[in-house]
Each structure stands twice: as structure tokens, then as C-alpha cells.
Design a protein around this nucleic acid. Structure first.
Lengths: 185, 185
DNA sequence: CTGCAAAAAGAATCGCGGTTCTGCTTGTGG
DNA sequence: CCACAAGCAGAACCGCGATTCTTTTTGCAG
């Protein structure tokens, strides 16, 4: 089968989504044309369509990449031996925010309000994140505060909700700062 | 000057933005065509362009309308004689959320990340809202908790921030529920 | 009432941007 | 090394949607 080896193919796909994310960050999901991504990635129209069925597909892949990356970083805390307390957890989450991704993230929220595919990705990511925050808080209650596991899971609920909400709001604040740097010619 | 009386003109403009908001809510800012708004409002292309320079202008006006309405409702609490405590304030804010407006609101966040005009509107609204929440919380500290005014303003800071963040997060959650009802044929 | 400029309707225009198509080029498995 | 399918480049196509133009209607001042 004389086609690209799987690894190389993944690389190309990543190259494209990364360029796409940069474009989306400055121009928005809808206002970036395929031509923009072509220019940013150094590839050509045909090449992009060889890797993604259409623009919607590419947007979806990019959104997934951004959100997954963000959620994954969080997972580490939940599994830590010495879980951070809620304030510390929030501080770390906030410290890990990247402005470019924040902008695209917020854009996906808007898109999720009427694009079913994106909606599912966003909801799944947020739910997953909540679960991980919950785990992290529960672990903290048990390991550091020495609360009974059964009670801890319950008490973690409102705390996790607060941490998640404050984090999301901060993501929004971040996205609204930094006035979308221009394209470097 | 034989043209529409000011009151009537305002009415038309409102009729248009209201139709636009409904369209935006279901189809998104960019995916809504002028034709959609034409259909929803019962007016015609020419009529819309008689009231708004272009689509960007209309989007801006609609965004402003939605956000202003939301912020204004909040003002009442800040001026109340018996200010609600923070939890109660948050509960009332959340209770006042309208799903249609929530969707458009979240869409404006995404838009604000790369549309300067919308960005300014959103930031101004959020800042204004924060100020009002702050006032409301300060009033509560002073009038109900009997804290010294000077100290109250300071202590209100983090509380206001939390209330605002939890509110914004809830707006997002609301926008992500309710799967964007279809157009009634 | 009357006239007239503005407003409304709806057709026509025009460009942009997603997708497709046509050949070259290149990587891969044998 | 070879051969050939897949990749890739870039031109061409095509439709949709914002804006504009033309014509008809309408509200307001006198």
C-alpha cells in the first residue's frame, strides 16, 4: 500500500490542525478561509482536502485537539499522590492557560450553541473535566484532610463545581484580553 | 421632514434586532443570512438596509441589545433597600437567565475574541456588571452585616468576583443545554 | 387632501470561499 | 532500484449570501 505511513500521516494532520488553530485564534472559526490555513500551514488546498473531508471536519478536529490537550493536563493533578487543595488546584489550572487556546476554546463555546458536532465535543470535554476536578478534590479531602471516602465524594461536589466555574470564567477573561495579534508577514 | 417619526423608527429597529436575535440563537451569528432575518422579521432586504448600514452593524446592535438588557436587570438589585446576600444574589441572577439570550450571549463571547467592535461591547458589559455586583455585595455588607463602608468595599472584591464568575459559568451551562429549537415552519 | 422624500419590496449583481478537478511529485513496499 | 497509488499543488468551478439598484408604496408636513 504505497501511501503515507501512519505516523507521517498523523504528523501532517497535526501540522494542519495546528496551523488551523492559529488562524482560528486570530480570525475566528468562520472567518478563516481554507486559503488562510493553506498560507499558515505552507501546504495547499488539495493537500488539506486529502486529510480532512471538509472544513467542518477540520474545525471539529481542531476543536477536539485544543480541548483534549487542556483536559489532559488536568488529569495529572487528579492522580497526584499529594493532591493540591482547591485553591491551589484552581491556581494551577489558571496558570496553565494559554491565550491562543483560550480564544479558540471560547469560540468553540459559541459554536457549540448551534453546531451539534462541536456541541458534543465541548460538553464531553467539560463533563470530563468536571469529573477530574471532582476526583482531584476528593483525593485531597481523603489524603490531606482525612475525610471518610464516602463523605468526601459528596462534599467534593459543590467544591468541584466552584473550581470548574471559576476556571471557565477565567478562561473567558483570558480570551477577552490579548487583542488577537496580527499575522506576521 | 417627511420620513418616519423617531418613535416608529425605533420600533422598526427593535423589530429587526429581535428577529435577528432569534435567528442568531438558532443558527449562530455567522450562519444567519440576511435572508433568514428577512423571513423571521417579515420585512424585506431593502428595509433592513434602510435601518442598518450592514450586517456587522446589525450584529453589533443585536449584541448590545441582549447584553444591555441582561445588565440592566442586575442594576435593580444593587439599588435595593434590602440587598440580597451573595448566595441569594447569585440565585436570582441565575433564575433570570433566558436560554435564547444565553446562547446569543455565549456567541458574542466567541465573536469578541476577534471582532473589535463586539469585543468592546462585551468587555464594557462585563465590567459594568462586575461593578454592579460589587455595589450590591457592598450594600449587603454594610446594610445587613453592618460592616464599616470602607472595609466593606474591600471585602466585597473577592466575593463579587466569585459571584460574577459563577454566574458567567452558569450562562455557559445554560447555553449548552437546550439544543437550539428548530424554526417553526 | 396632496405631494414628495423616505422606506419597503424584491430582483439583480458581484465577489468570496468551499469544494472539486487535473496533472505533477514523492514516498513506500517489494 | 522500480512502479504506482497516494500526496500535493494550484487552477477552475459554482453557489451562496451580502450589498446595491429599481420600482412601488407609504407616512408625514403643509
Amino acid at each position: 500500500m504505497p501511501r503515507l505511513t501512519d505516523a507521517r500521516k498523523e504528523l501532517r494532520r497535526a501540522q494542519i490542525t495546528e496551523a488551523a488553530v492559529r488562524c482560528f485564534s486570530r480570525n475566528g472559526l468562520e472567518r478563516t478561509s481554507i486559503a488562510d490555513i493553506t498560507a499558515e500551514s505552507g501546504l495547499s488546498t488539495g493537500s488539506i482536502y486529502a486529510h480532512y473531508r471538509n472544513k467542518a471536519d477540520l474545525v471539529q478536529a481542531s476543536a477536539h485537539a485544543v480541548l483534549a490537550k487542556r483536559a489532559e493536563a488536568l488529569g495529572a493533578y487528579a492522580r497526584s499522590d499529594t493532591p493540591p487543595d482547591p485553591d491551589e488546584l484552581l491556581a494551577r489550572l489558571i496558570a496553565g492557560i494559554d491565550p491562543v487556546e483560550a480564544r479558540v476554546g471560547v469560540q468553540t463555546w459559541g459554536e457549540a450553541t448551534n453546531n451539534p458536532a462541536i456541541h458534543d465535543i465541548v460538553v464531553a470535554t467539560i463533563d470530563g473535566m468536571r469529573a477530574m476536578v471532582h476526583d482531584s478534590v476528593t483525593a485531597w479531602l481523603v489524603k490531606v484532610e482525612h475525610v471518610e471516602p464516602a463523605e468526601a465524594a459528596e462534599r467534593a461536589d459543590p467544591i468541584a463545581h466552584r473550581v470548574q466555574s471559576l476556571y471557565l470564567a477565567h478562561l473567558l477573561y483570558t480570551a477577552l484580553q490579548s487583542p488577537a495579534e496580527e499575522t506576521a508577514s
